[in-house]
Design a protein around this nucleic acid. Structure first.
Length: 427
RNA sequence: GGCGUGGUGGCCGAGUGGUUGAAGGCAGCGGUCUUGAAAACCGCCAAGGGGGAAACUCCUUCGUGAGUUCGAAUCUCACCCACGCCGCCA
């Protein structure tokens, strides 16, 4: 949630910032919020004045009772003004509910320096590695994987439906190897604390990170219990500190979690969804960081670097793309996508998204810290990055490291985890 | 699913319907003492939201919501959550 005080103090600047997201409806919401805010404060002043009078009179009643003096006429007065307070409070509650509902629907402010425009304005900020050159026609991963006997998409479709892949043999072990490799890397070399979290979360948890109330149709839900499958570990992990006040000395710190992710991807069929490119259930190692506001830009760079290290160790060429304001996710202020090269399908695929949410999630989830033991609590900044998502990493591993005979070289970093240095088709 | 117990500040924990935003303790901060530290002693220590240039001041908050009352942490009802025992199951 954005800071309503900022909206009040700088309505024009706020409106202009939010409009960079290329969603015209925010202007309307901003106007509605400003009106509601004004109305709320007017009512609040009236209600509070009345309450202050009533409180004073109530104390006078108490005093007279103790002194054995009569207080009947005062009590009668108070009874009458009680209804007025109730009416004012009811109106206030309505306004505040409306205010909250509208405020929750507003996206975060894009960070300064993010490019203006839509996805076409995304900016490549750096690249690593060279797309491999082949003296044969490289195959797409669905062919490679089927030939290797490690992926069985029809089986998944039978069990559940399209987009729920089944891995077999070394394919299944590959997922396990990637999880162990990434978790070891981030805990041993990058200082993250590993956490294992629930895959089913409540409405409050999803509201804290921004998926709800706006994006419920993207989630798999269980109406009977009002629970949802997590679309990313970001959700449970960030909410680990919901409604907490952290000690300033503890910041910054980070968690790493390996979880499956579930996304309905409603209406995303067809283009760019073949094989493992876009699936409803996939595994991911997620990095979540908590920082002081003044450190979050530097933390964002570090975090992005941690995700990049995964791709480097896997010897996968990638580029880092800064998303334009209009292409940045709802809760994010700045996002770097890590796009890995996939030689078989011949495109760059988003394998990681690294975002800083500034205080947007912290406000929703009420995650604060104290600079000093006695200082006022302030909102932390939250950040997260995939470190990294498995399907597109597997695509890149297969497609970039393939050989003419249909075998696939396993990068050195992964060999100890997978137990083989090459995936080969069954004889 | 059945029965029971309980939800109070950063943490633990007391609380008789009326100066209780809340005793006491721990942690923290400041001080006295000390060469320094510890101990001891003294003091300060909730959050959110309004108004105000500021000093300051007001309102709200004891799981959540409704109710009774002039007045609710305290009484009533519903719900949520945690824990315990029983049942079922891995």
């Amino acid at each position: 949630m954005i800071d309503l005080k900022r909206l009040r103090q700088d309505p024009e600047g706020s409106r202009a910032g939010l409009l960079r997201r290329l969603d015209g409806s925010v202007a309307q919401t901003v106007d509605a919020l400003l009106g509601l805010d004004r109305e709320r404060r007017e009512l609040l002043v009236r209600a509070e004045k009345l309450k202050a009078e009533r409180n004073a009179a109530s104390e006078e009643v108490a005093r007279r009772k103790r002194a054995k003096e009569p207080a009947d006429e005062l009590m009668a007065q108070l009874k009458a003004s009680g209804d007025e307070v109730k009416a004012l409070d009811a109106r206030l509650r309505d306004i505040e509910a409306d205010l909250e509902r509208q405020a929750m629907s507003l996206p975060n402010f894009p960070a300064e320096g993010t490019p203006d425009g839509d996805a076409s304005a995304n900016r490549v900020v750096r690249a690593w590695g060279e797309p491999p050159a082949f003296d044969f026609q490289p195959k797409p991963h669905w062919e490679l994987a089927a030939d290797l006997g490690i992926l069985d998409l029809p089986a998944g479709a039978k069990l559940t439906g399209s987009g729920f892949p089944v891995f077999r043999g070394l394919g299944a072990k590959l997922a396990r190897a990637l999880a162990a490799f990434m978790l070891d890397l981030h805990t041993r070399e990058h200082g993250y604390t590993e956490v294992a979290v629930p895959y089913l979360v409540s409405r409050a948890t999803l509201t804290g990170t921004g998926q709800l109330p706006k994006f419920e149709e993207d989630l798999y839900g269980f109406p009977a219990d009002d629970l949802f499958l997590i679309p990313t570990a970001e959700v449970p992990v960030t909410n680990l500190h919901r409604d907490e006040i952290l000690e300033g000395d503890a910041l910054p710190f980070g968690y790493v979690a390996f979880t499956p992710c579930f996304r309905r991807e409603a209406g995303a069929h067809g283009k760019d969804t073949r094989g493992l490119i876009r699936v409803h259930q996939f595994d991911k190692v997620e990095l979540v960081r908590f920082s002081r506001p003044e450190d979050s830009d530097a933390e964002h760079e570090r975090l992005t670097g941690h995700a990049e290290t995964v791709l480097r160790r896997l010897e996968l060429p990638y580029r880092v793309v800064e998303l334009a304001a209009g292409d940045t996710g709802f809760a994010s202020a700045r996002t770097f996508d890590l796009e890995v090269w996939a030689a078989g399908v011949g495109t760059w695929l988003e394998a990681s998204s690294s975002s800083t949410f500034t205080d947007f999630q912290a406000r929703r989830a009420n995650i604060r810290f104290r600079r000093e033991p006695r200082a006022k609590p302030e909102f932390v900044h939250t950040l997260n990055a995939s470190g990294v998502a498995f399907p597109r990493t597997i695509i890149a591993l297969l497609e970039n490291h393939q050989a003419a005979d249909g075998s696939v070289r396993v990068p050195e970093a992964l060999v100890p985890y997978l137990g083989v240095d090459r995936l080969a088709p069954p004889a």
